[in-house]
Each structure stands twice: as C-alpha cells, then as structure tokens.
C-alpha cells in the first residue's frame, strides 16, 4: 500500500467519475457482464483487489485525474484478466484486435469515424 502520508486527492473534486470515455466503457462492460451472469460480483471484487493491491506505484500526482486514470487502468487490467479466466475472450485476441483498432485509427483522417476493417492487415 502507499505512503501513509500521501494527501488524499481533491476532496472537493465533485461528482466527476470518468475522466476519459474508455473508463466509462470499461465500467459499463463490467457491470453488464456481471448482470449477464458472466461472473459474480465477489469474483469481480477479488480480481480488482488483486490488481489494486499489486506493486504498481501510486500516482505521484495528486490530481483526481491522475488517481482516476491509475484506478481505471487497474480496473481495465482486472477486467481483461477476468474475461480471460472465464474463457470469454483470449488475451492474445484482445491485443490483436486492439492493434487493429490502432492501425485503423492511423489510417483514418482526423474527424472521420474509425472502421475496424481499415486496420486489418492484408
């Protein structure tokens, strides 16, 4: 766990939960998969605790954004790990699809919708 003297970020940060769309999407995917019966909430909490309790350093920055980003990255890693354990999606396939999305983005002019197919290698 972190240094006990670290200040708590932004007690007045208000009600902003997500600082980037991927954070909201990762959250919604988790809740949805749970509601579909893919895993119990206890299983999810265990997976998340494992990530958060791992040796990843706490963010140096005190901003709520930095803390939120570290938290949601742990959340996403926990979700990717759990879908793998549950046999819902293979890690290698996820990474391959992620690279495909990135290639598709590179091939797409700014301001144009990104099509997955644009990133497929021929």
């Amino acid at each position: 766990m972190s240094d006990a003297r670290l200040p708590i970020p932004g007690p007045d940060a208000g009600d902003l939960h997500f600082f980037a769309p991927w954070q909201a999407k990762a959250f919604a995917l988790t809740v949805h998969l749970h509601e579909k019966g893919a895993f119990s909430w206890t299983e999810w909490a265990e997976a998340l605790s494992e990530r958060i309790g791992s040796d990843r350093p706490a963010p140096d920055a005190q901003s709520p954004q930095a803390h939120a980003e570290a938290y949601w990255r742990d959340w996403l890693d926990a979700l990717l790990g759990l879908v793998q354990v549950k046999g819902l999606a293979e890690a290698a396939l996820i990474e391959e699809a992620a690279r495909t999305w990135q290639r598709a983005a590179e091939a797409t002019p700014h301001g144009t919708p990104i099509a997955y197919e644009a990133g497929l290698e021929h």
Binding site: K25, A26, L29, L79, A98, W101
Partner: peptide
C-alpha cells in the same frame, strides 16, 4: 486503453 476497451467490446 481506448484500443483495448474497443477490442474487448
């Protein structure tokens, strides 16, 4: 992160 979430979805 965005690419991974889109891939998973």
């Amino acid at each position: 992160e965005t690419a991974r979430v889109m891939a998973l979805e």
